[in-house]
Design a binder for these strands. Structure first.
Lengths: 219, 219
DNA sequence: TGTAAGTCGACTGTTTACAGTCGGTATTAG
DNA sequence: CTAATACCGACTGTAAACAGTCGACTTACA
């Protein structure tokens, strides 16, 4: 009985590919693999202790997510974002999240929505005294929840495809600037707007939030 | 000199992976691989005459694009869309394209934009007498152009990630219904709206177009 | 007969080794 | 000093192999 190798509390074991994917995402968005850094397959596969084939599958996905970009002859490197790209990313993010906000306004069970969002804000509050990473994490979790609660899987998937780029934007702009807009108050405004059920108000609130966040990053 | 294996008229030769990706996309969105169909790696790799490793890289991307979905133990099958999913896909599509329309309104060189879009509409007109596939193709090309002209690479990329799902939606709903909304007139309205430079009008026009298209598919 | 255990086959996950190709770089001949 | 050559690093693609898993089928036993 004792000596279980892993708790497995509802966790399903992930494939090596998924583990590699997570590891690479973290390495990139944490800056451990700096933008522009050339990624050599053999190096990475040795580093991660996986075969090249498995690694390549993970790299394809990172490419799709925009974390790495392909140069001539398939050469991969960590993507470098300039200010225009950050603005562009945030414009798309704003479009997706404003759809989410509008959708939530038209949901029958808005009670549950408000509840879940408040819970996410509580997590942000709890993280205020924590590390920078924790604060970023809880902020993104709030916005991910926003998308998830719509029940629109495509929307959630599109947002998650953008998540890596969003993280890179925050990192690129410097962590201090990046988190300064993550105040709990601003997020309460969003929930309040959704709670009124006024779709255009909710949309407006999100767009302002995104504008402020983007302006903050590239200012 | 004679006997070139391929014309290569300005075409850059694509990697086997990319070729496989295109072939699979076409096979799925054309219905040759019907929704729900279980995809066996060894079968496909033999069919496409490529190795399993290369195939798996292509499959990862199709998974990301939502054309195939993973079942238990990594079993892949062609994705099946129900009506809700189609509506959801079109909601996201509408959000992206309305961003595109709004962005185009604020562009300095709107002359060039209008020109390019008219050219795309001309292609649609030319396709009216062509095959169903051609009509769908030219319609999607118009909308892709809409996104491309914004100069927002992230927007274009997000739209293209959705393109496969859009094609599946059209196919699923039955080709007759799917193309009935692809009238040239409607697209002229969109260009006209953008041409006025009125962002909210352009947004409204696109949203109506998308609503009509989605309603048509699931009606 | 009914069911529980054992077997087989089909697939995926993953690894290893190897051939081919393309550029860049260093070396060497003129 | 220049140019042809050889080499090397890195990516693309391939083939073969093995383990793990699950479903289906078979078989043996109560």
């Amino acid at each position: 009985m004792a000596g279980l190798t892993a708790p497995l509390l509802g966790l399903q074991k992930k494939s090596l590919r998924e583990q590699a994917l997570s590891a690479l995402r973290t390495a990139i968005t944490s800056g451990e693999l700096e933008p522009g850094r050339h990624l050599v397959e053999t190096e990475l596969s040795e580093m991660l202790q996986i075969s090249r084939g498995t690694l390549r599958e993970a790299l394809r996905q990172l490419e799709q997510e925009g974390l790495v970009s392909a140069g001539p002859r398939g050469r991969l490197s960590v993507r470098h974002l300039d200010e225009k790209e950050i603005r562009d990313i945030y414009a798309v993010r704003a479009a997706l999240e404003s759809l989410a906000a509008r959708t939530l306004c038209e949901l029958p069970d808005r009670q549950h929505v408000t509840e879940s969002l408040h819970k996410a804000i509580d997590a942000m509050t709890a993280a205020t005294s924590g590390s920078l990473e924790d604060r970023i994490e809880s902020d993104l979790e709030f916005h991910r929840t926003l998308c998830r609660l719509t029940g629109n899987e495509t929307l959630l998937h599109s947002w998650e495809s953008l998540e890596g780029s969003i993280r890179m934007s925050i990192m690129f702009a410097g962590l201090e600037k990046g988190v300064s807009n993550m105040s709990v108050d601003r997020h309460n405004d969003i929930v309040a707007a959704i709670d009124t059920g006024d779709a255009s108000l909710a949309r407006k609130t999100i767009l302002e939030h995104m504008d402020a966040a983007a302006a903050n990053l590239v200012a």
